[in-house]
Design a protein around this nucleic acid. Sequence first.
DNA 1: GTGAATGAAAT
DNA 2: ATTTCATTCAC
Length: 242
Amino acid sequence: MDMSQQISSPNHEIAVYLAAIWDGLKDQITPFLSVLYIDDTIYRMLDSHGRRYIARKFMEHTREAVMYCRDGNRGDRHYLGPPRYFIANGGVIHSPDGLEPIWAMNDGLNTRLESVAACQPTVPLKPTKIPRPPNAYILYRKDRHNLVKAANPGITNNEISQILGRAWNQESRDVRQKYKQMSEEIKIALLEKHPDYQYKPRKSSEKRRRTRRSQQAHAILVDANLAAPDDDAVEGHSVTSV
DNA sequence: GTGAATGAAAT
DNA sequence: ATTTCATTCAC
């Protein structure tokens, strides 16, 4: 191998350059980190290839599709992370110019979803979590949930469940059969789309324990570039789709 | 995350 | 026989 040839090649220089940038960025990585903070200066040094390179390196850590987002509150900050990270806790992804997505937390007043940018995975990702198909009662409850709520202002979901649980047990075999039929069709459709689907309940010990950090506290952590354990959020295997 | 109902599917 | 998780969303 002719090393001198490689060292002098532009490609090699670029590779070294990108590797150096990644080297600096990866200092942020902890086992729980799900979003990478990238200073605007660094971000602008990267062209599309460079950004793709960094994204790929980071995906190797997150095992999820990631996207870039500019900080909606501070234009000089960029983040790289799974779309679900930006969406969580009322966050929205703006893309006013249709090009560069901007992430902002929902203040309930003047944030609106303009458009959502897509991103394409380039490394093997964690398999998507396929939701369990709903049973007959779940479909029945879903159907009547809004009706019961409208008829009983201030009613809680638990009360709705109690009411519809009784209603379900009183329902004619016709109605029950109708929903049973629906649930079976949905299940068949699911198996058709995901032939390898299999229900995999976790042990209760595997369920999420830590109570969620407040939105505000979380925003502060992110802003201080201390974004932490917000992400073992993936039960067993899954990616929240956007 | 929990609760509150039912039921499918796993353990 | 027991447990998880599908739906909903205030708490």
